Simulated scan of single mutants.
Amino acid sequence: MKLRVLLLSVLLFCAPLWAHGADYVIGEGDSLDISVWGVKELNFPVKVRPDGKITVPGLGEVVASGSTPSQLQVHLGVRLKELVKNPIVTVTVREITNSKVYIFGSGVKAAVVDLSRRTTLLQLLCMLPEVKTADLANAYLLRTGGRVKTDLHRLFIKGDMSQDLVLESNDSIFIPLLVDRSVYVLGAVNLPKAIEYREGMKVMEAILEAGGFSKFADQNDVVVRRKDGDKAQALEVKAKKLFKEGDLSQNIELKAGDYVLVKEAFF
Rank of each mutant, 00 (worst) to 15 (best):
S31Q: 12
S31Y: 03
L32F: 08
D33Y: 14
I34K: 08
W37H: 12
W37S: 05
V39S: 09
L42T: 13
L42P: 04
F44G: 09
P45E: 02
P45W: 14
V46W: 03
K47W: 03
P50Q: 07
P50Y: 12
D51N: 15
D51A: 13
D51F: 13
G52C: 13
T55W: 03
V56F: 14
V56W: 11
V56C: 09
P57G: 08
G58W: 10
L59I: 12
V62F: 06
V62Y: 11
V63A: 02
A64C: 09
S65R: 14
G66V: 06
S67K: 15
S67Q: 13
S67Y: 15
T68V: 10
T68F: 08
T68R: 12
Q71T: 13
L72A: 02
Q73A: 09
Q73F: 01
L76G: 07
V78I: 12
R79C: 01
K85R: 11
K85M: 05
N86T: 01
N86W: 03
P87K: 02
I88P: 00
V89D: 02
T90A: 09
T90P: 00
V91R: 05
T92K: 08
T92Q: 01
T92Y: 11
V93T: 06
R94D: 06
R94C: 00
I96D: 02
N98D: 11
N98Q: 05
N98F: 09
S99A: 12
S99Y: 08
S99P: 00
S99V: 09
S99K: 12
V101L: 02
Y102I: 13
Y102W: 12
F104G: 07
F104S: 15
F104A: 12
G105T: 12
G105D: 04
S106I: 01
G107R: 04
V108E: 03
K109S: 15
K109L: 09
A111Q: 15
V112N: 10
L115E: 03
S116I: 05
S116N: 13
R118D: 11
R118G: 03
T119L: 14
L121W: 11
L122I: 01
L125Q: 10
M127E: 14
L128K: 09
T133V: 06
D135V: 03
D135L: 01
L136F: 13
L136W: 14
A137T: 13
A139M: 12
Y140F: 15
L141D: 05
L142S: 11
L142G: 02
L142Q: 02
L142E: 07
R143K: 08
R143V: 05
R143L: 10
T144Y: 06
G145Y: 07
R147K: 15
R147Y: 07
V148I: 14
T150A: 12
H153V: 08
